[in-house]
């Protein structure tokens, strides 16, 4: 899970989830606490879905 996807591609990560921002990849201080937690949950769920997906090459799991 990273904000700068090109770095993860360069270093060879196979399942990549783009995140929010460098200083807060899994959060957004501009949102309310509830909204922020909802955002974090959706990102982590996307990561869990990626772990359960078969990939044969480097794959970026973008928002659906």
């Amino acid at each position: 899970m990273c904000t700068i996807v090109p770095i993860s591609l360069t270093v060879g990560a196979n399942r990549i989830i783009p995140t929010i921002a460098i200083p807060h990849p899994l959060g957004n201080p501009d949102l309310s606490i509830e909204e922020e937690r909802k955002l974090r949950m959706s990102l982590v769920k996307r990561a869990l879905a990626a772990l359960q997906t078969n990939v044969t090459e480097q794959t970026v799991f973008k928002e659906e």
Partner: peptide, 12 residues
Amino acid sequence: NRVLPIDVLRQL
């Protein structure tokens, strides 16, 4: 948790 999402992982 904005970097290491322990709160939501515990919930899951």
